[in-house]
Computed example of a mutant assay.
Amino acid sequence: MKIPKRIQPLVDDGLVDEVKSQLMSGKEASVYIVRCGETIRCAKVYKEISQRSFKKAAAYREGRKVRNSRRARAMEKGSGFGREQQEKVWQSAEVDALYKLAAVGVRVPEPFGCFDGVLLMELITDDEGYVAPRLNDVVMSAEQAIEDHQVMMSYVVKMLCVGLIHGDLSEFNVLVDEYGPVIIDLPQAVDASANNNAEWMLARDINNIRDYYAQFAPELHTTEYAKEIWSLYEKGDLKPDSELTGKFTQGETLADIDSIMQEIDAARAEELTRRERIKEAKEGIDDKKFNWGEC
């Protein structure tokens, strides 16, 4: 296929040898299947801020640190230079998160570097060489749902233990290969200790995953992993190997009305986003299946 303009510099530099096809195009980025030597990878091309429609991006940027004081001031003022720096921070957040999470045992695509808004990374495939399906497209037994849900909860805990919350976790950004779930799409990853929205973002992530697996294992509907995990985190008792029960007893405290309203607003926004993604999926994001044995 014709080489996309943003990938051409990587071809010129010998980082990419061939662009085989477009895998998908979303609101934040387009993903292409590329050949690098003898290896098939994917190239994620981030869209410009003017083209991107990620909901409430400012809420996700809150708390992100920039060491260079000039860059930080420019970002606060919203100047042209500042917007450019915000884009670089947005893009580097994903590759930084991928390296950090892989180091603590969270299954994510292996990154190979981010080059001027193009992230080169591992292509996740199933045992037959096809592009791995999204969790949204997977049907499973109750036993498998419970097992994979536990795996996902362990990943959420490991992420939080290194200070990260995915921020947009759902069945649409988890792939499933022969070894189980793989978490993708992390440019909006949230700093748990510095973002005022961290608690409800974590709860939304966990509850999205719970609700999907509960379609196959209804007993998961009554679990309270979000409250249990956040409570342990706030107390400083959360460890990567913490044993979770999925149960939580609410203390005798007054309800935080602001937090409740935030959760309600977040739930509404998430439902609208989910509907848009389902619509996109029906319109063709499920594309063609790719079999590398035939390339």
Score class of each variant (00 low, 15 high):
R6M: 13
I7P: 02
L10A: 07
V19W: 03
K20C: 13
I33R: 06
C36G: 01
C36P: 00
T39S: 09
C42K: 07
I49C: 00
S53A: 12
A57N: 01
G63W: 11
R73F: 13
E87T: 10
K88L: 15
V89L: 11
E94Q: 05
A97W: 08
Y99F: 13
G105F: 12
V106T: 03
E122C: 05
P133N: 09
P133W: 12
S141P: 01
M152S: 05
M153P: 04
C161M: 12
V162S: 02
V162F: 12
E171M: 14
E171D: 08
E178S: 13
Y179R: 14
G180N: 07
P181M: 10
V182L: 05
D185C: 10
A194W: 06
N195H: 00
N196G: 13
W200P: 05
R204I: 14
R204G: 03
R210A: 02
Y212K: 03
Y212L: 02
F216K: 02
H221P: 01
W230A: 09
Y233G: 04
L238V: 11
L238C: 05
T253R: 09
L254H: 03
D258F: 13
I260K: 01
Q262D: 07
T273K: 12
R275Q: 12
R275P: 02
R277N: 05
A281S: 11
K289I: 15
